[in-house]
Design a protein around this nucleic acid. Sequence first.
DNA 1: CTGGATCCCGATTGATACTG
DNA 2: CAGTATCAATCGGGATCCAG
Lengths: 123, 123
Amino acid sequence: MNANKIKEREKISCPVEYAVSVLSGKWKLRILHAIIKQSPKRFKELEREISGITPTMLTAQLRELERDGIIEREIFATVPPTVEYRLTEFGKTTAPMMHEIKNWGLKLQALNAVLKSNGKSTA
Amino acid sequence: MNANKIKEREKISCPVEYAVSVLSGKWKLRILHAIIKQSPKRFKELEREISGITPTMLTAQLRELERDGIIEREIFATVPPTVEYRLTEFGKTTAPMMHEIKNWGLKLQALNAVLKSNGKSTA
DNA sequence: CTGGATCCCGATTGATACTG
DNA sequence: CAGTATCAATCGGGATCCAG
């Protein structure tokens, strides 16, 4: 259960482990990244932007991020229904971290591109 | 298979997804954090510092980090055997990211401590 | 001490079908 | 459009045993 996950989290002392316990998984960071880039964001927009994710997973992950106080959900009683997601004030504190992660991802991509093109040359 | 994981990675364009593909899992970031704090670090020291990890997992994760060019391993033919792990030059580029992650973890812990004391006491 | 090889479980995830 | 429910399959990760 979810409540269990929360209980487990309370035992954690290491800040890194704590952050991981909230952000781990294939999708959380990408969702966060997408919402940081443009907020608010609708369900469908997220689904399109995060290639490979299924609606089921997107819903589940969004619920967890909401429960953890990082994003908030606003429902509009329109037809068809509209739901917007945006960062909470606390959620905005992830921005520097996300920036560094993205940044490092770029370095990593660049490095691997080089390694690949070298393949077997130089050394 | 591992080679497969590498192949998959080549298709990724999003930097965040790329970073996640290398760092995801329960242990990678904690291992990195431990080695950043003090380098070089021996196998046993890592095992002690990263509470909960088993030698099997520690080995597996270290191998992946090594393969991804983030850490390097040095073996000393002593009795008993000694192995030291340290960051590569590229591995050092994770420092700002790790700093932000740790930092955010601290904020998160602080927030949840408040939420808990509100929700519980006073009641 | 370091860590390779197996086996195995259960949480995580995906596919599908359905609803307000 | 924005989900929910269910079921099945996969895979990360733990336990155990073994070796240099």
